[in-house]
């Protein structure tokens, strides 16, 4: 048994990995073989073979834990006694949690709006230019970088050196400040502006997504619409405002809501760059801190449920807008 649980050498780990994949393949092959063998099996038995393993995993790994978390949010820190809504009251009344809620609100409003705006302007500007491919690839690239990696990249941009003779700045942003004659700043330490500097990182990562989707939408605007507007003497900014933006409205809604949901659950950036200190924590980070650092499972569960509740209205809005868009067609 030990062999399957503790792999310490590289060879062992790779062997274990191959074993896991083979085990999975063997189990699936056995199931499919079993449902395929008898000639006249009813459809539902075949279906069980195809969907059964998935449904089992989802039930055990997603549905049960989610229900259990909702239950746990009404219990105290180790789940031993029922406390009603106390955990939620704590989240909404204590000072440091109010900072957390305010920061989350800041993130979820700013990131989607700025990201979509930037992505839209950039997609419009480089659309059908000679450099389109390269220009898009540059903005798209951060999507491949982990949020941890992006956090490190930007932490270096914000790096601060004390303002003394003989000490040179090594962070790009502070160097720019010094060149312009300002004093260098501790960007990540001073609340409340430090939250904005973290938000920048998220915008930097997500803009590529916004740009890609919106660029595809811009390209799909029918030629006759653009042509007709041009014949009417519409050009430049007016074209953007009265033709491009209204034509891609459904895509805009999808981008804003998708980015908003991603943003709600971001914890990597905050954790990497400030660890949630200096009043920069957000709900997703606070969940991790409470559940796995403070071992206050009740409070952690309440924060997770809160996250879930915050996601629902955004998705509801998204679905509604898509319905409206389809009715218009």
């Amino acid at each position: 048994m030990q062999w399957f649980l503790e792999a310490t050498t590289t060879g062992h780990k790779i062997a274990l990995m191959v074993f896991a994949i083979l085990l999975f393949a063997a189990v699936m092959a056995a199931i499919l073989f079993a449902v395929d063998r008898p000639k006249r099996v009813p459809n539902w038995i075949v279906a069980v073979g195809f969907v059964g393993p998935t449904l089992l995993l989802l039930a055990v790994g997603l549905v049960y834990p989610a229900l259990e978390t909702v239950r746990g949010s009404f219990y105290n820190r180790d789940g031993s006694s029922f406390v009603g809504l106390d955990n939620y009251v704590t989240v909404f009344s204590e000072d440091n949690f109010q900072t957390v809620l305010f920061n989350t609100l800041l993130w979820v409003v700013l990131v989607p709006l700025v990201t979509t705006g930037l992505g839209l302007v950039y997609a419009y500007l480089v659309d059908r230019t000679r450099f389109e491919k390269l220009a898009k690839a540059l903005v798209f690239l951060p999507m491949a970088i982990s949020m941890v990696g992006a956090g490190v990249i930007w932490k270096f941009v914000y790096e601060y050196r004390p303002d003394q003779p003989g000490v040179r700045q090594i962070g790009l942003l502070n160097q720019v400040l010094v060149l312009l004659g300002f004093e260098p700043q501790q960007f990540l330490l001073n609340a409340p502006s430090n939250s904005f500097y973290l938000i920048v990182v998220m915008i930097w990562i997500q803009a590529g997504f916004a740009m890609t989707v919106l660029s595809a939408a811009i390209k799909a605007i029918p030629d006759d619409v653009v042509e007709a507007a041009r014949l009417d003497g519409v050009g430049g900014l007016q074209m953007f405002r009265y033709v491009t933006v209204p034509s891609i409205r459904p895509a805009l809604v999808v981008v804003v809501t998708t980015v908003a949901i991603t943003t709600l659950k971001v914890f990597d950036i905050v954790r990497t760059m400030t660890g949630g200190q200096f009043s920069t924590s957000v709900v997703a980070n606070e969940f991790y801190v409470q559940a796995f650092r403070q071992f206050n499972f009740g409070l952690g569960a309440a924060l997770a449920v809160l996250l879930f509740l915050l996601v629902i209205p955004i998705i509801a809005y998204n679905v509604r807008q898509l319905r409206l868009a389809e009715e218009l067609r």
Binding site: Y64, A66, V70, F297, A301, A304, F308
Partner: peptide
């Protein structure tokens, strides 16, 4: 019904599952 149910599971943030899991 099952397909819609699986589709709907996408809205569950993984945070909600971590402690019991």
């Amino acid at each position: 019904l099952l397909f819609v149910a699986v589709f709907a599971l996408q809205v569950v943030p993984i945070q909600v599952t971590l402690i019991p899991l």
